[in-house]
Amino acid sequence: MFMMMRIEVTYYAMLKEQRGCAAEIIQTGARNAGALYEELANTYGFRFPKERLKVARNDAFVDWSTPLEDGDRVAFIPPVAGG
C-alpha cells in the first residue's frame, strides 16, 4: 500500500526567503530527496535547479537518490559562502 511520509523540511538563506519560512512538516509520497525537491520546487516555484543545491538528511550530506523514511529531517543546501 502506498504510504505518505511525514518529512521535516528546513530551508536556509535564499531558499528560506523564497519559501517565506525556515521549516515545515511535509506530507509527501516522494521516495527520495531529489523527488521531494522537485515536488516542493513545483509547489513553491523555487528558482534553483537541483544541480546547484546539495541535500542533507538527518544532519549529514547525502545523494539526491537517497531514499527517505517517515520522520526524516531534510535540508536543501544552497551554494555555501562561509569564511
Binding site: 538563506a13 535564499m14 544552497p78 555555501v80 559562502a81 562561509g82 569564511g83
Partner: peptide, 25 residues
C-alpha cells in the same frame, strides 16, 4: 575546505541599500 563545504551563507548589505546572498544561483 570550510569555504567549499560548510553550510554557511553570507548576505552582503551595500551602501546603496541593496543586499544579496553571495553565490546565489
Amino acid at each position: 575546505e570550510l569555504k567549499k563545504r560548510l553550510p554557511i551563507w553570507k548576505k552582503e548589505h551595500y551602501t546603496d541599500g541593496d543586499s544579496g546572498w553571495i553565490n546565489a544561483p
